[in-house]
Every structure is written in C-alpha cells, then in structure tokens.
Amino acid sequence: MATVTLTIEDVIASLEQVPPADLLGVKLLEKRKAEPGRWLPTNVPREQVVEAAKQIVEYSTQCQKLANTLANLEAAPSKHVVPEYGL
C-alpha cells in the first residue's frame, strides 16, 4: 500500500506560506487616512491611482491566466501520494 507523503493540509499550509503580492493598490489602501462613510479612498493623487490600477490590472490578468492553466492541467506522475487526488 502506498505511503501518504503529502496531505491536503500540507498543500494548504504550503500555499499559505506564499507572501502577499507587493501591490501599490493594497499599500495605498493600508496607508490611507480614515474617511468616514467611505469604503474606498478618494484623496489619492491621480497619478498614483493610475499606476496602482495598471499594476492591479496586470496582476488580475496574470491570476486569471494562472487559474485557467491550473484548471486545465494534465495528469503527471508524481512520487508524492496525496490521497485526496489519488486515482
């Protein structure tokens, strides 16, 4: 019987170690001063917003491409035995 070498919890824990993407938009949100009644900032200089938006659009597009790639992965032999994905 195959020995389980990797559990789904291990995969999740591994993915959780990945640091958050370094995105200007997120930084701008973190640094913003409180604006009562506002979910999103309105007082950020336009140039910074455009730069942050460009970065977020690129990041979103990359994530969408990656998600599509992962959704269409072909089977590949592995030494690891992950019971949740066993045949």
Partner: peptide, 23 residues
C-alpha cells in the same frame, strides 16, 4: 463603514479584494 474598512485592511485577502474593487 470606516471601522469595517480598516478591519478589511487587516486581512490580506480582503485587502486585495478591496484594491481590485477600487482599481
């Protein structure tokens, strides 16, 4: 709203979601 907004920023996923919604 300001409080919830600041709480959202304390979580990386929610922070990213807010940034995407914004930008």
């Amino acid at each position: 709203v300001a409080l919830l907004s600041s709480l959202m920023r304390s979580d990386a996923t929610l922070s990213l979601a807010a940034a995407v919604a914004w930008l």
